[in-house]
């Protein structure tokens, strides 16, 4: 009798602090995120102890897939369009504005220039499904890859060149790529690798 019963409340936790943490982390991840763009091929690079970072912009990347196919990509969309125009000029192919626009979305591609037009005429969702044959490269040093590199450098002469080879790709393909670049008087290459810890006790030499 006369007992005071406490009113029953559902147990509540203060979520404010948790929200704060969650959104702080979210902000961090959004800011640092660099998305994987739709690459033409999955490439696993070898690792090296080199500490030089790959530049993000003004770069053209030649990728070598495990099967030895060669892909080419340039970073900025505007440069891609200019490159395609230059390439069309040399090869005598004209591309429509729609084709140019579609091409500017491709971070890398691997088509002989003759097949490029039919690939660009496909709807976007089908484009990614087509198996790409790779850019023709041979040991003569004057194959299409050399033309593409020339067209890209004509579009933007500040482009740096990087080669991204797969672990399993065979050496002769790399040799051919090298021959194509050397024919353009490019003698300095950046090989993209993953990072790896140097062995214990190893100290970098001061320059």
């Amino acid at each position: 009798m006369g007992k005071v019963r406490p009113k029953k409340h559902p147990p509540t936790t203060d979520m404010t602090a948790m929200t704060d943490v969650a959104f702080l982390l979210l902000t961090f991840f959004i800011m640092t995120a660099t998305f994987k763009s739709n690459e033409a091929a999955e490439i696993t690079t070898p690792t090296s102890i080199s500490a030089i970072k790959v530049p993000d912009e003004k770069i053209m990347i030649i990728s070598i897939s495990p099967e030895g196919k060669v892909y080419f990509g340039v970073d900025a969309a505007a440069t891609r369009v200019a490159m395609l125009e230059n390439m069309g000029e040399t090869k005598g192919i004209s591309f429509t504005d729609l084709e140019k626009q579609k091409f500017s979305f491709q971070s890398s591609f691997g088509f002989p220039v003759g097949q490029l037009k039919s690939w660009l005429s496909l709807p976007p969702d089908q484009m990614s499904q087509v198996k790409q044959p790779g850019i023709p490269v041979d040991s003569t040093g004057t194959s299409e890859l050399a033309d593409w590199v020339y067209a890209a450098r004509k579009a933007n002469n500040q482009l740096r060149l990087a080669i991204k080879g797969d672990n399993a790709s065979k050496f002769p393909v790399f040799k051919d790529v090298l021959a194509n670049l050397q024919s353009q008087n490019i003698n300095k290459f950046n090989l993209i690798t993953g990072s790896e810890q140097p062995p214990a006790g190893w100290v970098a030499e001061e320059e």
């Binding site: 030089i52 050397q182 290459f189 993953g194």
Partner: peptide, 8 residues
């Protein structure tokens, strides 16, 4: 990714 320079 890091890069390794190769001069030929």
């Amino acid at each position: 990714p890091t890069s390794m320079t190769l001069n030929v």
